[in-house]
Design a protein around this nucleic acid. Structure first.
Lengths: 332, 332
DNA sequence: CTGAAAGCGCTTACAG
DNA sequence: CTGAAAGCGCTTACAG
């Protein structure tokens, strides 16, 4: 037990020959103290191996060094990296987190959570949604500390919101195909009612129109599954559509498309280049050989960004987007 | 702002007509107080909507209601569910967590983390490893609060350690094949130096010997990948080995094996039943249609169990194993 | 069972 | 720039 828990600030002050108040100011750095004094106090603190009692500091200052994290089904596939990123970022910044998981839509549950968080005197709150298909009701007015939202559609323009950039994902994927010489691009994706589907498609169309290219065929809407990707690719091949690239709404669809190409002797990426979204294997199985070029939405980084925002002094209202990244694989 | 932060325990005491000390005892329940008094104090607290100041409570009691979580690469595929489970469990129990991620092997980094955690007066510590291929050095002696280890091989027999039950996973998988009438079972798995490989194999052999069955062919050691699963299955089919079931070391290997079976006209599960380990799609993509029967190591539950242990009063030394579960799919 | 009092170890106006 | 003092709001021996 090398750390002496019995050294108090008063002891440091005595050794340094200053008052308790001065010792406090010297160490906290929040107040005007002469350099000489500060140095003397620091030396004394070092010599005594002074470790301030965090509990006393919190009580006296009113700051808990704890952040509330309100999650909507934190264990869901895509929420998980966001929550994990946030928790790690908070940890690196010396902030504890009180994570309350539940139904953000459930009014009763939420008001309980809000009470708990307020009672614990959290220094800030991060609300983590489950994508941006749903909005989380704004809780900002319940707190007098910063509230930041991540991975959920904003409910109020006043709120600070962080989102993955699905449009940019579509843009990046398509740009990559165009930049590598493809000109006849198809799009296989999930159901058209999904916001992610819509935004990825919009980004794709922007990239195409910038390049003056048409889409090589109608967008095929289905599901986020490998099965759908395979079925859609079968249909496309059966219809003898002329194309040299496919932008798939996610990696599952991409894998299904590749499976079918391989089975039917269509070379990937020789005949057809394929790009997906999610960086599936990257999320999942770090050591695996990548089969697919994909767009990584950087969900963990998104969580970190939002966490930094809760703590940071430079908070502001509005939506901000985490830029996705292109992850190259053999399929394009 | 419906919650009145200005109501202090002293106000409650005044309204209830008792002393501050009695009010404290009545609400905390830790001390002998007459039922009548307790009821009066509770009523007063309710009426005033008294919310105890957690910061003051912590300071006075010395309990931070914060648990330290020391992780070794928390973002890694398999650590993530463990950490997530632990964090959620702590949250449900009103415990904040201070998560410090890093290299548990790195001495310097660890001693910094230990200091930070001690300074914050954590009420307990959970050390999360990255599987049980590595041991984490025991830190128990650095703390006078409970320390629990999870997902890492124990370094000291004194420690409280939680592990996934790889042997039971192998046993369950094999038992399932036997129970569904298979008698000629093969095993395709990763490299023999891995502890997980060894334990899963041991469980398999136990199930076989209980049933009086031999293995249908030599165990094939390779890698945790789909590619290896496919290659191994190709070889097995080429060698015309007589078998009706395959226990695969993980789901990736299982998928590779199924791919090859399907490509070569071997019916799954008609001709060959396949079982994997990891519940890969379950971890990953909740809504997906399952293709594979598999064993779920229940890593998130493992994290929860270990978290409950840190807090619980019934802690004891030694290793405990989280039972895996069988998840049925169409492949067996 | 109840209460008066000390104490937890800092921070922060305030005065000098 | 420095210090005396109040204060943060509970909990907990201790005495009655």
């Amino acid at each position: 037990m090398p750390i002496n828990r019995d050294v108090r600030l008063a002891d440091v002050a005595a050794v340094a020959g200053v008052s308790l108040a001065t010792a406090s100011k010297a160490l906290s750095g929040n107040d005007r103290v002469s350099e000489a004094t500060r140095a003397r106090v620091r030396a004394a603190a070092d010599r005594l191996d002074f470790r301030p009692n965090a509990l006393a500091q919190s009580f006296a200052s009113g700051r808990s060094r704890t952040i509330g994290v309100l999650t909507h089904r934190a264990a869901a596939t895509f929420s998980r990296p966001v929550v994990m990123g946030a928790v790690l970022e908070f940890g690196e910044r010396g902030q504890a987190v009180l994570v309350l998981d539940g139904e953000i839509q459930a009014h009763r549950e939420m008001s309980n959570s809000i009470r708990t968080l307020r009672d614990r005197r959290v220094d800030g709150l991060l609300v983590v949604g489950d994508g941006h298909e749903h909005v989380s009701p704004s809780l900002t007015h319940h707190f007098d500390v910063p509230v930041t939202y991540v991975f959920t559609a904003p409910d109020s323009p006043e709120d600070s919101v962080y989102l993955p950039d699905n449009e940019q994902a579509g843009y990046l994927a398509t740009r990559h195909l165009i930049d590598t010489g493809r000109t006849r691009i198809l799009h296989l994706t999930a159901d058209a009612t999904s916001l992610a589907v819509q935004r990825r498609e919009r980004g794709m169309r922007r990239a195409l129109s910038e390049a003056g290219l048409p889409l090589a065929g109608a967008v095929r809407y289905g599901a986020w599954s490998r099965e759908w990707g395979a079925a859609a690719m079968e249909a496309v091949l059966d219809e003898r559509i002329d194309f040299d690239a496919v932008f798939c709404g996610n990696d599952h669809i991409g894998f299904g498309a590749i499976d079918v190409c391989e089975a039917r002797g269509v070379g990937v990426p020789g005949d057809v280049a394929v790009v997906g979204v999610d960086n599936w294997e990257g999320i999942v199985y770090d050591q695996d050989v990548r089969r697919l070029t994909t767009i990584d939405l950087e969900l963990m980084r998104l969580g970190r960004l939002a966490a930094a925002d809760v703590i940071g002094a430079d908070r502001r209202s509005g939506e901000r987007f985490q830029p996705p990244t292109l992850v190259l694989g053999p399929s394009s």
